[in-house]
Simulated assay, not measured.
Amino acid sequence: MSFDNAFDALTQDDGDTRWAFGTGFDDPLAGIDPAVPEGLDRAALAAYCLMLGDDALVMSHRLQEWCTHAPELEEEVALANIALDLLGQARLLLARAGVAEDKGRGEDDLAYFRDASDFRNVGLAEADNGDFAYSTVRLLLFATWRLALLDRLTASGDPVLAAIAAKSVKEVAYHRDHAAMWTIRLGDGTGLSHDRAQTALDDLWPLTGELFATHEVERRLADAGAGVDPADAREECDAVIDEVLARATLRRPAPVPPHLAGRDGAHSAALACLLAEMQGLAREHPGATW
């Protein structure tokens, strides 16, 4: 099929959701009333969108750090595109948080002018990249969990959150499958790649307990029919991870009990370093546009 220009080729809907721009440039919120539904707790909705948006924003930045460092060019492009997907999700979710809290803050204010203690992302997203096996296993754990949440959020009582989730499910399904492919390739590859993948899994596993701990905000939104209790997604996530690990010949670590940390603003030093890099330009030139 021929196109008059490259932009037409990118925006043409060919049904291939695996291409980073294949989900199109259409506004996922077009035609949806942005007003917070009657009876829904605005503060809780804002806090919930911050949690999901911060997860995506921080994870996106970690993946962007692989640019010029990935083991092969094709993988560098793939990781950059996954990072762009997550950045797009973060923008929508932070914008929704700003509307819900109604304090005059937009997506840029929330991304660039909050300190680490104000971020609500899970610790898994902020951990340093480590080697390629570490980042691959981290992406598998993160995407498997996020996909389970987003799939349930497509039925959210908040139409905006439901629309964001519907768009994001297509993207994160690819993220999970891509990470699974690489985890199997590394785990069932050479002795060195297997050992590195197993070490990454062992190191990251303690952070997974936080993924399934239910914060009061999550419980409140779930009870209102607008959010998801992450504990309800654990069985589904376990089944997916177990299948991937079996094919990758990797040993699953011992179970980790649920615990809260990042959702309450408790973070590692790694997040402060990440934010210093990500927010530096905006804070040096507040209000600037380019």
Rank of each mutant, 00 (worst) to 15 (best):
R138K: 11
Q198S: 15
L110A: 03
G88K: 04
L186E: 04
D177A: 12
S193N: 03
G262H: 06
A6Y: 14
L207F: 00
A20R: 11
R105A: 13
G187H: 04
R138P: 01
T144F: 05
A111W: 01
I184S: 03
D238R: 02
A261H: 11
C237N: 01
A70D: 11
A100P: 02
A95N: 04
Q64K: 13
M278H: 14
A35C: 09
R247P: 00
A30K: 14
Q12V: 09
N81Q: 06
D238Y: 01
V228K: 01
A80H: 08
A165G: 03
M51T: 09
G189H: 02
H175C: 01
C273N: 10
S193R: 08
A226G: 05
E101M: 11
A272F: 00
G280A: 13
L86K: 07
V99M: 10
D203Y: 11
L260Y: 02
I184R: 09
R120T: 03
A173W: 06
R105I: 08
E101A: 15
T136Q: 02
D115N: 15
E218R: 05
V160D: 04
L149K: 06
G225R: 05
H61L: 15
A276Q: 07
D128R: 13
M278R: 14
H285I: 12
G106C: 03
R234N: 02
R185M: 09
W19T: 15
P159D: 00
G209Y: 10
A269N: 07
C67L: 13
Q89K: 08
Y112S: 14
L94N: 09
A9W: 12
A127T: 04
G24V: 05
L63D: 06
A90W: 10
G191L: 13
D14L: 14
T154Q: 10
L57C: 12
E107W: 14
G187D: 06
D109S: 14
Q89V: 07
M278Q: 12
D14Y: 10
V169A: 12
L221C: 07
L260S: 04
L186F: 08
R146Q: 13
T154Y: 05
R18L: 15
A180W: 06
D115I: 04
A163I: 00
D223L: 12
A200T: 03
L50H: 13
G53A: 04
V169R: 10
E236Y: 11
A261R: 07
K103M: 06
L124W: 03
A276H: 07
A95L: 03
R247I: 04
P71L: 12
S117K: 03
G31E: 10
V160K: 05
A44M: 11
D229I: 02
V256G: 14
P230V: 08
D232Q: 13
L57F: 15
V160W: 10
L207G: 00
A222F: 01
V58E: 09
L204D: 08
T249I: 08
L140K: 05
V169I: 05
L94R: 11
N5V: 10
T11D: 15
G187N: 01
E236R: 15
A233D: 02
A95R: 01
D131I: 00
L93V: 06
L86G: 06
R62K: 11
D158A: 14
A231F: 00
I241E: 04
H69L: 08
L29A: 02
G22A: 10
G187I: 07
L281N: 03
D223W: 13
A155W: 03
G157N: 03
D13R: 14
K170I: 00
D55Y: 15
G209W: 14
G39K: 09
